[in-house]
């Protein structure tokens, strides 16, 4: 890696602070999930606000509590959950050396993405920066860590401009209840008409026992007496456990699984799903 620029010091690391990018597809057959930003839509917009390529590495964290002290003048942007703090979501601005940015309170949504002009620097594993601590790939960022950018973080950007915002029609408000489009899963026919109807008529909530591997849904139980042998599992699959709880497999989730899959989340709605916090409601709608 060429010369790196120290950008900030971590005063408080909050929840799940890590570097993510578009992930490492192609290794599922070895048991290694792709990882990558949970909400790719917000990652892309954060990068665009600071003039990066869409897939530059970003910082991802859940909810709140992250506090950073800037060691250099930088252009930085934030997209994703609705947080109250020193940088408004869906905007980017110039931050001066010595400034402290705090993300104090999350009032809707789950994940926030921070992009720095020049892109955050990180080692690559299998061609991607995305941390997957469980697999000993990268790790969570800790208090007192220094974060670096790949290029000088303030060069030649937007002279005379103090702030940039995402256009209203592209902004997303992750505070509201959501309707998620789903396809039939590979074991859709294991579930009778009543079960299939239950799934789309109920309101579901994300259990607090959820993480980057998967979201457990609360609000009802589904039932089938049929079983399968272990089968490849993709992010977005809605698996039904023997206890009847649906689990949506996500970016760091296992690559094979033996639970029947009733549905598969429309890829265009996956970012809405991962941004649904435990106190928001989620409904599903068949598209086929």
């Amino acid at each position: 890696m060429s010369e790196l620029y120290p950008v900030c010091r971590v005063i408080s690391s909050g929840v799940g602070l890590s570097i993510q990018d578009s992930g490492r597809p192609g290794w599922r057959r070895f048991g290694l999930p792709a990882s990558g930003a949970m909400d790719a839509y917000s990652m892309v917009w954060a990068n665009r606000l600071v003039g990066n390529s869409d897939w530059s590495p970003v910082l991802e964290f859940a909810f709140q509590g992250v506090k950073l002290e800037f060691l250099a003048d930088s252009w930085i942007a934030c997209c994703g959950a609705r947080t109250e703090g020193d940088l408004d979501p869906w905007s980017g601005r110039f931050v001066e050396q010595g400034e402290i940015l705090s993300f104090r309170r999350c009032v809707g949504g789950v994940f926030t993405y921070l992009a720095i002009s020049g892109g955050w620097a990180s080692d690559l594993w299998f061609g991607s920066c995305s941390a997957n601590p469980r697999a000993r790939i990268g790790g969570l960022i800790k208090v007192e860590d220094i974060l670096y950018s790949q290029r000088k973080p303030n060069v030649g950007l937007f002279p005379g401009v103090s702030k940039r915002v995402v256009l209203k029609e592209s902004k997303r408000d992750y505070c509201n209840d959501v309707m998620i489009r789903i396809f039939r899963g590979p074991q859709y026919e294991f579930f009778n008409r009543e079960q299939v109807g239950e799934f789309v008529s109920k309101e579901w909530r994300v259990s607090s026992r959820s993480d980057r591997t998967g979201y457990r849904l609360e609000g009802g139980t589904l039932y089938t007496d049929k079983t399968i042998s272990s089968e490849p599992t993709l992010p977005g699959s809605v698996q039904v456990t023997p206890s009847g709880q649906p689990i949506v497999t996500l970016n760091d989730g296992p690559t094979v699984g033996g639970y029947p899959k009733i549905a598969f989340v429309h890829p265009g709605d996956l970012s809405w799903l991962v941004q649904t916090s435990p106190n928001q409601n989620m409904r599903f709608q068949w598209v086929d």
């Binding site: 597809p25 192609g26 290794w27 599922r28 057959r29 042998s229 272990s230 089968e231 490849p232 993709l234 690559t255 094979v256």
Partner: peptide
Amino acid sequence: LARAADENPPERLQECVLGFDTFLLV
């Protein structure tokens, strides 16, 4: 099938994954 997908993949293949008695083409 995995060997065939390595040596002579269909166009636009991103990856393939082996299950116990299933084979996934992404």
